[in-house]
Design a protein around this nucleic acid. Structure first.
Lengths: 149, 149
DNA sequence: ATACAGATTTGAATAATCTTCAAAATATAA
DNA sequence: TTATATTTTGAAGATTATTCAAATCTGTAT
């Protein structure tokens, strides 16, 4: 049981949802087919990338959230995209950005607890290409993915 | 027209979506009503907070993304939640976290361009309670809200 | 081990929502 | 203005979601 619930969470975290056309139509007081036309159009044009669920991450073993500033080694510095793509592949990584400033990358990582985060730092962030990291732990998540807590 | 499309985007950015039960059931090869039961349970227990759309933010006039480290003034320092809640109220703010380390808050802000971001800094981040800010601009968003680009 | 209570799974009927499609309205370009 | 493309809309049929009762599974106390 817990098994299938985890699978559902995984699938919902990046897809497997759909817009509520009737709800939107009622809210905006326009015909549903008009909403549908515009939504379809935005999907076709790549304006909408996905429909997904937002969780209370404390309740799905992802309660610990860290922002990490990553500085790359000299030989990776000119091509941050390789390591960025690698980090993006991890399910615990919510976001990866190549940024301006002292550090090359900013990532947001969710883990069950600090032990698991430490493992992440040891296993994932200790790659040859990464020179050093600076973690900032979230003590309270007031807003996430445009959704207020 | 553009008017209603903007309203749709606004509503989809934090809700007005729903899980695709048939899709989940087929993927997991279990009956749809089982998926439904578990999803409903997770909604009831507050595990799932919302269903929403993820956009290509460049295509909806939110192409510029900034991470901002915010240090609070002495008199707000002991109660960051007031300012955090205030910032969370802005539609341009994707996330607000109260963090450990030198700065009290980390926020993620999306704007049309740098001009609009400058206005945001001037108008929103120049409150009495905020001592100083440090912006890091995203040059490339590799992964956002668990969705890869 | 057994019996019990609560939680979970499941299928069938019903209800609601979505998709399709063609026509009408509107906007855009020549 | 006329022609062309885009957008809006309603009605039908198709798909998906909800309800609900029965069956199954789980954990627990006896």
């Amino acid at each position: 049981m817990k098994e299938s619930r985890n699978s559902i969470i995984e699938l919902l975290s990046a897809g497997y949802c759909t817009p509520r056309l009737v709800g939107l139509a009622k809210k905006l007081v326009i015909p549903m087919t008009t909403v549908q036309y515009n939504v379809k159009q935005m999907e076709k044009d790549g304006v909408i990338r996905a429909y997904k669920a937002v969780f209370d991450y404390r309740k799905i073993d992802m309660g610990i959230c860290n922002f990490v500033l990553i500085s790359l080694a000299a030989d990776e510095y000119s091509n941050p995209e390789r390591i960025a793509a690698h980090l993006a592949g991890h399910g615990n990584v919510e976001s990866v950005d190549i940024i301006t400033g002292d550090s090359s990358l900013m990532i947001k990582v969710r883990t069950k607890d600090m032990d698991e985060y430490y493992q992440f730092v040891k296993n994932v962030l200790s790659t040859k290409g990464i020179a050093n990291t600076r973690s900032m732990t979230s003590m309270k998540q007031v807003k996430t993915e445009f959704v207020k807590t």
